[in-house]
C-alpha cells in the first residue's frame, strides 16, 4: 500500500468548519502565530496538501513562502468567508513574473 497523505485546512473557524464535513483535518486559528504553528505542525505530520484561507495567509506570508519551493506539502490559498481577496491570484502573477520576467496574464485581460 502506498503512503497516503492527509489533507489539512487552516483558517478562521467560521470559514473552515465547512471542510470538516468532507473529512479533512480542520484547524481553526485566530491569529498569525497559531496559524504558523498549525501549518508547520501539519507539514511535519505528513500532510500533503494544506489549504489556508487568504485572510490568515496574508498575515503569515513568510511561512507560506517557505513551503513554496518544496515538493510537499502544497500550501494552497482559498478564499475566506468574505470572499476572495485576490491574494491567490496575485501569487500566480508573481510566479509568472518570476519565470517569464513580465506579467503576461494581465496583458491579456486589459
Amino acid at each position: 500500500m502506498i503512503f497516503m497523505y492527509k489533507i489539512g485546512v487552516v483558517g478562521e473557524k467560521d470559514a473552515v468548519i465547512a471542510f470538516l464535513s468532507l473529512g479533512m483535518t480542520v484547524k481553526g486559528v485566530e491569529n498569525a502565530k497559531e496559524a504558523q504553528m498549525a501549518i508547520d505542525g501539519m507539514a511535519r505530520e505528513g500532510y500533503g496538501l494544506i489549504f489556508v484561507t487568504e485572510t490568515i495567509a496574508k498575515e503569515i506570508d513568510e511561512t507560506i513562502e517557505r513551503y513554496k519551493n518544496s515538493f510537499l506539502p502544497a500550501v494552497i490559498l482559498i478564499p475566506g468567508v468574505q470572499g476572495s481577496l485576490g491574494i491567490g491570484l496575485q501569487k500566480i502573477k508573481d510566479n509568472v513574473e518570476k519565470a517569464v520576467g513580465v506579467d503576461i496574464l494581465s496583458k491579456k485581460e486589459g
Binding site: M4, S21, M24, L49
Partner: peptide
C-alpha cells in the same frame, strides 16, 4: 458535521 462519514486522503 463533527463526525464525518469518511476521510479524504491524498495519493501523491
Amino acid at each position: 458535521i463533527a463526525m464525518p462519514a469518511e476521510t479524504i486522503k491524498l495519493d501523491v
